[in-house]
């Protein structure tokens, strides 16, 4: 019986190091790998806790005290207090979890996401209406494509 899997690299062991290594070659992007998931575990679980209305109330009343209930690093806590989402991505945050923080602030995805691009909200929104950011030059750092 021959291997008839339609995909060349499917169904067999793949080189996990090569697989993960490629993620660092994407401009302006932090892929949510196991390493980031471990680093950001408590940060993301803190954010998740804001799904509950009673927790949102306690959070709004005293952000610092609420953060201190979580075993997060001081850097992560500062990143949250500053709503520095790029910093939080670097510290293991995941955008769907961090969304609980900006939703509690009353921000939409569009508003919050624009803060990570270095663009003004109006400019970011105009770029989206004009068809979004082009993939040209945004695919690979090494290959400049």
């Amino acid at each position: 019986m021959s291997d008839k899997n339609p995909c060349e690299n499917a169904g067999g062991p793949i080189d996990i190091h090569a697989y993960l290594g490629e993620f660092d070659d994407i401009p302006g992007t932090r892929v949510y790998t196991a390493q980031r998931a471990r680093q950001g575990y408590h940060l993301n679980q803190f954010a998740m806790s804001l799904m509950k209305a009673e927790n949102r109330e306690r959070w709004k009343a005293d952000e610092r005290a609420y953060l201190d209930e979580w075993p997060m690093t001081e850097e992560q806590k500062q990143g949250v207090l500053a709503r520095d989402y790029n910093r939080l991505l670097d510290l293991g945050g995941n955008i769907y979890f961090l969304a609980k923080v900006f939703s509690t602030d009353g921000l939409s995805f569009l508003q919050a996401v624009s803060t990570m691009t270095g663009m003004k909200l109006e400019d970011y929104q105009a770029m989206m209406i004009a068809g979004g950011r082009s993939p040209e030059g945004q695919r690979s750092i090494k290959e400049h494509r």
Partner: peptide, 13 residues
């Protein structure tokens, strides 16, 4: 296509 994070956010193809 969409990217919700980082400086490359807003990418559309």
């Amino acid at each position: 296509s969409h990217q919700l994070q980082g400086p490359r956010a807003g990418l559309i193809n």
